[in-house]
Simulated scan of single mutants.
Amino acid sequence: MTIWFATGNSHKRAELSGILPGHIIKIPADKGIPFDPDETGATFGENALIKARELRRLVLASGCGSQDPVIADDSGLCVDALDGRPGIYSARYGSIEGGKKLSDRDRNALLLQELQSRSELGDNPRRQARFVCAMVLLFSEDRFYLVQETLEGELVREERGTGGFGYDPILYLPQLGRTVAELTAEEKNQISHRGKAGKAIAKLLADG
């Protein structure tokens, strides 16, 4: 089955392809479809649905894959000591309004710096955090499934590992003794927030 994935992130496409083997995963760039929807939702689920509906509209308008389902996800890092931030703004954390996004490394450094400054000020020094992924499987405007999963961990004090992307090098998994960036791709897909959400979506696809 061909599935459209509402992302411009090649790392996410690679992860989803590993989670949904046997399916052809296309992204808007494959057909030259501009894709940059306004993520105006207040939750991960709302933003995932916005992206799924927008990509379906664009695919229908382009005349390619009118019967193909669309998958969209919205994900981010929620830090307890920062009252759940950066949350739905994870990809834009630290960016100047209308300006260029920070690199993954700079964004991670900024987040750890903010957490450290909270601790020095006597605020709660908790380092518990989690990745959250809301994933939508959309068949039509009003026919869709939404699942949400998490990956629990705690923040390290400096980056560890070279795998993965985004905040992976700073989320430590105590049960494994490694950060997400120190996992193999196969290990990450088994336990990650996106991997667990994707498996639920795969079951829905299998069940028809």
Rank of each mutant, 00 (worst) to 15 (best):
T7N: 06
A197E: 09
V180S: 07
G84T: 04
Y167S: 05
T2E: 14
V79D: 10
K31I: 14
Q175D: 10
L49T: 10
K196W: 00
V147A: 04
N9T: 07
G8L: 03
R127L: 02
E141S: 09
G99N: 05
K31S: 14
E39L: 12
R194E: 07
I24P: 00
D68M: 13
D68A: 15
Y93I: 09
E15D: 13
H193D: 05
R194Q: 05
L121G: 11
A181E: 10
M135V: 11
F144G: 07
L16N: 09
R118K: 08
C133D: 02
I19Y: 05
G87V: 03
L20A: 10
Q175S: 14
P21K: 03
L146C: 11
L151Q: 03
K12W: 14
V180L: 04
A181Q: 09
E15H: 11
V136P: 02
D106L: 06
Y145F: 14
S66E: 12
E15G: 09
L146K: 03
L121A: 14
N108M: 06
D83Q: 15
L16C: 06
G22N: 12
A181M: 08
G195Y: 08
G65S: 08
L137H: 01
K101R: 15
A81Y: 06
R13C: 11
K51S: 04
V180Y: 02
P37F: 10
G94Q: 08
G177S: 12
D168N: 13
K188F: 11
N47I: 11
G76C: 06
E141H: 12
